[in-house]
Amino acid sequence: MSNFDTSQRIFRFSSSEAIKHVILIFGALIVLLPFYVMLSYSLKAPAEIMQNTGGFFGTQEPFRDDYCIKLGNAVADCMVTPWIYNYQTAFEKAPLLRYLLNGILVTFSIFFIQVVIALPCAYALAKLRFWGRETVFALVLFCLLIPVHAIALPLYIMLAKLGLTNSYAALVIPWTISVFGIFLMRQFFMTIPDDLIDAARMDGMSEYSIIWNVMLPSAIPALMAFAIFSVVAHWNDYFWPRIVITGNRDLFTPPLGLREFKGDADGDNFGPMMATAVVIVTPLLVAFALAQKRFIDGITLSGMK
């Protein structure tokens, strides 16, 4: 009897809940639609994309690759299956693996250095008493308000004068100090009891040792949240790499790779372009799916949106 009662309570229809869900589902559809188009185009032949036929998967009938024929091959050798063609071209025409590797190298260097800098700063701001601490923290908050684009030009000029444009350094250095990271970690460190730090001091740890051996392990959830913010932002960043990487294609990050398929002489090639986009987006989606719970924990603990 009691089971029946609970199940009834759980499955009872509530019109207000239903309306909420309808609205949310509608919103989700709007957000997901571009992804649907991206995935669909990455599977279809060019003709199907242009004529908007073939449904989600396309018919997957082999079509003639004009570029292959231009190279002087027989027509029979140049018949390709659309989805294989799209993904193959993505990796062949643009060195996508190299771009992905660049992306990993850059985003992880940025994150690593950000942590190395943000943790001691956050520790000092949260746990040490020194003259002017509140002022420094106010400056940190102030820096949160500065948009990247506003200082892009001065940053570029400084890097150019140092001769650092077109290098990994140019991609990494401007992001190494993350005020957001400092702020987020400081808020988290505030919640760690002072006794723990005092115990570490009694045990003979130096202040740096406390940061890496006591604060860091306790701050893993906050650090995960910060990692996702940081990695997503710099993995997806198109603006800054576009500015500082001007010549050397070997330094392209994945978003820059998308440009390879844009504005060529033979027109836009949407199939391979969307295939590239899928390849770029996938690692982040996988990472997010794995870390979803931590991500949400991290955001709620910092009390931020």
Binding site: P193, D195, L196, D198, A199, A200, R201, M202, D203, G204, M205, V214, P217, S218
Partner: peptide
């Protein structure tokens, strides 16, 4: 503190979690 060779027990125990 560490060189005074004293040890301390805290109210919150302060064990490394």
């Amino acid at each position: 503190p560490a060189d005074r060779n004293l040890s301390m027990v805290f109210q919150s125990y302060a064990l490394y979690p």
